[in-house]
Nucleic acid binder design. Structure first.
Lengths: 217, 217
DNA sequence: ATTATTTTTTAGACTTGTCTAAATTATTTT
DNA sequence: AAAATAATTTAGACAAGTCTAAAAAATAAT
């Protein structure tokens, strides 16, 4: 049985590795988990012993197929709970991340499948992140960060990476929620900030923000 | 901040003391928590240091006002989640206890108040147990165990103490759910088993079972 | 009222997850 | 390529929660 803490580390490895693509360094993990590198090394050994990651000292970790499957189940739970909190309980999209971080550790496959059904088998959570199905499959997304869009180009907001409440509150204020159309007007050469039209209003967003807005074209 | 484990001990003290009436002995607590007396002594000291119980060595523990308030909040969460699982997710009443034992530890007052509202501010859970309100107040119940009813007497099933799935499945099979009327036909002298009429059918229930069925008259 | 038994507590140890400080290994810089 | 720097790991310690075995207190039995 995998512990609460091990689940959190595993999820972090999954996310930091971009879904299992690249290896993750000890310090990245320490930063993400708000802890010390030494603690990460300790935990890495445990996850490695359980076959959830591959560990090579001084070179970081890679997630295994088994580890990825487990991580996706946790992510599935997280996103289903976020959907529940927003759709059914009336939370705002910037208020749900922390509670979902707790709820994702509840152990009960029956609960999650019933919740999924209750929510009508949603394919994305309130931030536009895709929800893995029971078998841990993710629908392939073809999304482009707003950052990469040229002047004049249009798209539909599909997903907001980063669940920082202050970002989400800001995006809500300017009307940048998943499903909304967005068009690039111009890009400021100096700081790469982007002037866009959202819901007929012109807004300028920083490059920092534009990285976090994913569009489907 | 009170830990997961401390919450479970505190809740056990509350229940075993009959809501704070009598003192609870170390061994009772060990039995209830499925652990050893030595571990209970250790934990008792911690809860005592936090002012949640009063500890006198070799004499057991009593719950304090502060402890009772905390216990009632946990119980509130437990019962609201059980109600959610049955009413909204379609679980059977014998399937929800274990999951609710996990969900009751989620820390978020906003979550619980929104859940309460979503459920329509229920006053009892699926087993008929009263749900404490936000301030931890319980509506006074005036209920009598079936065990104490004489022949010919009638009542309405209000609550089933003991959430053992096998008991609950059995009660469901004989139609003994909260809200149903029940009438005592006769009491067998030898083993105090009780013949009753539930939903026009005659059934004999053991004394053991009859203790767990609470009626409002 | 002594002895026997039960209950409870203490003492010491183990596990999980964490930490600091020191030692290693890798990477950069010069 | 050697020295300096950065990243990672080891070593040893600590807190929470648990355990076993032994000691102490309370209760029951003779």
């Amino acid at each position: 049985m995998i512990s609460f803490t091990e689940e959190n580390y595993l999820k972090a490895v999954y996310h930091l590795s971009g879904g299992g693509q690249k290896a993750v360094l000890t310090n990245e993990l320490a930063e993400a988990m708000q802890t010390k590198a030494a603690s990460v090394t300790d935990m890495i050994k445990k996850l490695s012993a359980k076959g959830l990651i591959l560990y090579e000292r001084y070179y970081g970790v890679k997630i295994t197929t088994k580890g990825k499957a487990q991580a996706l189940q946790i992510i599935r739970k997280h996103r289903l709970w976020e959907t529940f909190l927003v759709e059914k309980l009336g939370f705002n999209w910037d208020e749900v991340h922390e509670v979902a971080e707790q709820l994702e550790h509840i152990q009960s496959p029956a609960l999650i499948d019933k919740l999924d059904k209750f929510l009508g088998f949603p394919s994305v959570d309130p931030h536009g992140d895709p929800i893995p199905n029971t078998r841990g499959k993710l629908k392939p997304q073809h999304q482009v960060p707003l950052e990469q869009l040229g002047p004049g180009k249009k798209g539909t907001i599909a997903c907001v990476k980063d669940s920082d409440p202050s970002l989400l509150k800001y995006l809500e204020k300017i009307g940048a929620k998943p499903g909304k159309k967005i068009q690039v007007v111009r890009i400021e050469d100096y700081d790469k900030s982007i002037e866009v039209i959202i819901q007929k209003k012109k807004v300028i967003v920083s490059k920092e923000v534009s990285k976090n807005i994913l569009l489907s074209l």
